[in-house]
Design a protein around this nucleic acid. Structure first.
Lengths: 221, 221, 221, 221
DNA sequence: GATGAATGAGATTTCATTCAT
DNA sequence: AATGAATGAAATCTCATTCAT
């Protein structure tokens, strides 16, 4: 009763402990370099139990990715008020994103680095999550155009590219913010908002940067 | 020269063949999953020779990173005319970057993905390369401010963040352009220029997006 | 009794269910490849119960062998009328043997194949059963000699060899009859009777095949 | 030079040593219970070398079966003079068979017991070898009929059954002869010849054992 | 300059078996 | 009477690395 080392726990609880340990090890060592021995030890159980519950190293990795992808999207969605204007929604979403990745760096490593370094089965899980976020950002950009009462004449492909760029920048800044002491989630979000929203506004007002014509630089790549 | 199966070649040539093979395998399988057997076979030599020339798996990986980081920075630098205005310099640099990563996807995978998923010794090489590029972009931003004859009142930390965001967006777009059929290096560069340069211009003119005050959202994160 | 999933049954019944499952798994997979997990699942009980009742994998295997050896000898004995002449007794015994092995192929596999591929403890059980059958056949052969009113001058060792050969042929034909569609127990028995009883008659009448003398083949093995 | 423990030998030699060890261990322990560790140790090499040369446990087992099946058929064929009459051919073949199995009991165990206890891939190898031998015996039986200038009126299926029975009896006697001290290959062969050839002669002369009619035993199985 | 032969160490995975309820 | 939770021990297999020539 109230003892120190808990033995014999219900399966659901043990599974979460195992996933916690696995995310930490996978996030720090990478999939291949992570050893099931180490994960089991960190989870405080024997290796056979990990296999009994999670089946195989691949299944364990997949379970980690799924859990953390769900947690991240849940966190971002929870930060958003759909009734606010588009810029405010993006701002809240970015803040939630940077806050979550800062608080769960190993999980972020699993999603951003480790899962992508391996074949389709794993990468596909992350691609799905990313697609959801890119779609959300794309919708916000369209809303912004409507709110500005402009017919922006931005082709779909370009909007998709812009959303890609924003999400990519966010992913990159997450790593930067984590690695640079003194940079908070709010600061990272503000930097990105300034960059992105200003650029978007300029584009919507019809001003765009155009590459030099071939006449000027006939030797272009 | 001449014969069918070339044996006995000068060391420098053999080494490059080994690095070629290693970049391909490391880029596709990842560091841990790559096997020295496979690399040696692809290089057309025996394993002991790989060890004789490159010492160990770690050293071989480091040599790959160094060679490809140098190749990438060389390619970007070669694309730039320092006498042109800042926007044109950035445009040329981005075009060169996207062109090089598209032409050498395995090398880009080694630098962008594989090197980062492993401990300090490897990541450090890439960090150095990235720092050089970020510094270059930061300088361009400052040049742009001077050219606009504005005292932008942009604190250094923010400029660094912006450069970081731009480089991150570029890295992300490189993967996107490689994976999306029909997107050329030029198009990826144009998308990014629109995003970044327009935003930068707005910032320089003093307009900036500001987060809502605490009064409005007292429950903020 | 009555409900869908029967729980809580008397020990004797549960034990037979376990043995049924074990015979099937052991017969198909072999001793070592059979897993206690699979046996427990097929028996519809939990693994600890199997251990509670049958003690260990070895004990379980031994119990299977014993039960099936007893069942086979019982079946053969039940087919025989001791008051009939020797040839008829052999005929009935063979028919019963082929019928039983055809109806219980997994049990036959356990006795004929699996038990023999393992060390003394298991093989011994089968050896005992086999010895009983060989002794029975030997007795029949002796009876046949007496019935024929001949002093056959067959040394004991040779009779034992003949009985051994008959039983071996029967075992072999059992597998053949099981594997060859359209061969019934009666046909297998008839084939063997023709082979064995005719040969025995010839031997009893004093005609025997004699190997060539050394003079003819001085290089014999 | 002329040292005690030989290291560094050509691959072909090492492979044979490994097969020797594997046959011994597989023959005594069975496929599943045999451990690659034990085989490697008995062969005097490290485990990785076994895998390098023989690929996997399954491949190693298959290689054993193939080698020993080839050796056994070669031995039997070498013992036969095709220009002799049928009975002499059978006699020589049986002698060679019993001599070979007596001299290589582990190999015989691999072929007769272990290979059959496992799935198709392995059993198939032995089935092929056995089919060859059964075909040879069938041919001899037909030759005997021709030599006796009889039109035996033996249906093919029955001849096949007889050949099966003979081969089965031989297989069984091989184990018996190995286990019974003082029984030589020649004695085992003589016992079987007496049994088989006499029976065959009786059959060829038209006398056959016929089962009782249903009228006599209406309750037959 | 180049390689066939060989291995120590460690990876994932499975299994028979027991404890606490 | 019965079981969910848990494990020690060992299996197959792979890999980076070296030796002797």
């Amino acid at each position: 009763m109230g003892g120190a080392r808990t033995r014999r726990m219900p399966r659901a609880v043990r599974e979460q402990q195992m996933l916690d340990a696995a995310v930490r090890i996978f996030g720090r060592r990478g999939y291949a370099a992570a050893s099931m021995d180490e994960i089991a030890e960190l989870a405080g159980v024997s290796k056979p139990l990990v296999y009994l519950y999670l089946n195989s190293k691949e299944d364990l990795f997949t379970a980690c990715i799924r859990r953390e992808a769900a947690a991240l999207t849940r966190a971002v969605r929870a930060g958003i008020r759909p009734d606010l204007p588009a810029d405010r929604q993006l701002w809240e979403g970015l803040k939630a994103f940077f806050a979550h990745t800062a608080q769960h760096p190993d999980a972020w490593s699993v999603l951003h680095l480790q899962a992508r370094t391996h074949g389709e089965p794993f990468a596909a899980e992350v691609v799905a999550m990313r697609a959801e976020i890119v779609a959300f950002v794309t919708r916000l950009f369209a809303d912004a155009a409507r709110e500005a009462h402009r017919d922006p004449d931005l082709p779909e492909r370009e909007v998709a590219g812009l959303a890609e760029a924003l999400v990519g920048a966010a992913e990159s800044l997450a790593a930067w913010a984590n690695a640079t002491p003194g940079v908070s989630a709010g600061q990272a979000a503000a930097t990105l908002m300034n960059f992105a929203w200003s650029g978007l506004g300029t584009l919507l007002s019809g001003h765009r940067w155009t590459p030099p014509t071939r006449a000027e630089r006939p030797d272009g790549v």
